[in-house]
């Protein structure tokens, strides 16, 4: 009796204030998470000399020239564009390939299904840096060196295992009655996949999409090898180039780094709601 009464009451007030203890704890944890990041961003508002003299201080006076210099001097915007193109295409590719493969692994019964699944998950176990040399030789042979595709396709390949690991249980969790109903309504399995399952999977797809995007955005080694033209460089390479060229310019490097992490943070902010929903669904299974 009391249980059913309590539930509607909670629903009527969806966002009530929590207890002070909750807030203290939440603030403490959020603070620890953010403090170092804030430190880097704020340090961009100082000069190298200021940082050398007193590493822990806040900007006093606030120096705008460091950020301004970084934005103008470096090829920041161009690199931003390259990073974006690569990350977006790669994300779409991983999600597309991943959901197809996960669908099969989740909802078809066939001999060798578990073997196939294990095959994909082996990719998780190998350090990326080691296979890089043979990978590059391969890309060169396929004439993919120094192209966007030469970065995108391997990134998709590397991201597939984690994508399948997350998507498979999610897709498997949908009850089979759903599929039967679709059959009765005249759809075959593919139709079921396309018209019913995919729309319902949006949270999980966004989850793996965000993880893929972040992975591509932060990826350094592969673009370093494949993209020789400066004009194709991505942001991590840009940070590297900048710090090598102006290696003593601590403030500039921090400013550049801050700018480089902004897009990923922004993207995550926008997609945050979907991510948690997606993970929720994934761990249901």
């Amino acid at each position: 009796m009391a249980a059913t009464v309590a539930l509607p009451r909670a629903n009527r007030k969806p966002t009530k204030w929590g207890s002070p203890l909750t807030y203290v704890l939440a603030l403490a944890i959020a603070g620890v998470s953010i403090a170092p990041v804030a430190y880097v961003i704020l340090s961009g508002f100082r000069t190298t000399g200021q940082i050398a003299a007193d590493p822990a201080a806040l900007p006093r006076p606030w120096v705008l020239s460091t950020y301004a210099r970084v934005i103008q001097q470096s090829k920041f915007w161009h690199q931003l564009l390259n990073s974006t193109i690569i990350a977006v295409v790669m994300t779409l590719g991983v999600v597309a390939l991943g959901v197809c493969a996960s669908f099969v692994l989740a909802r078809y019964q066939f001999r060798g299904r578990e073997v196939l699944y294990t095959y994909f998950t082996i990719g998780l176990l190998f350090p990326a840096a080691a296979g890089i040399l043979p990978l590059y030789l391969l890309l060169k042979d396929l004439n993919l060196a120094n192209t966007y595709a030469g970065v995108i396709i391997p990134e998709v390949a590397f991201q597939l295992p984690i994508t399948v690991v997350i998507l498979r249980p999610f897709l498997a969790a949908f009850p089979s009655e759903l599929e039967d109903a679709a059959q009765i309504d005249g759809a075959d399995r593919l139709g079921f996949f396309w018209r019913i399952l995919l729309p319902l999977s949006r949270p999980a797809l966004v989850t793996v999409g965000v993880l893929a995007f972040v992975a591509s955005w932060n990826s350094f080694l592969l673009p370093l090898l494949v993209l020789q033209d400066d004009s194709l460089h991505t942001l991590p390479l840009g940070v590297q180039n900048f710090s090598a060229q102006y290696s003593q310019d601590t403030a500039g490097i921090l400013a550049f780094t801050s700018l480089a992490m902004m897009p990923a943070l922004l993207f995550f902010t926008l997609a945050e709601r979907q991510i948690v929903g997606g993970i929720q669904g994934a761990v249901k299974g």
Binding site: T15, S19, A30, S33, V214, P236, A264, F268
Partner: peptide, 18 residues
């Protein structure tokens, strides 16, 4: 509680940074 999603966002930030 109010602000829960903001809090969740902030705790996830370290993971997002390269």
């Amino acid at each position: 509680f109010r602000g829960r999603s903001v809090f969740r966002l902030l705790t996830f930030v370290p993971y997002v940074i390269a």
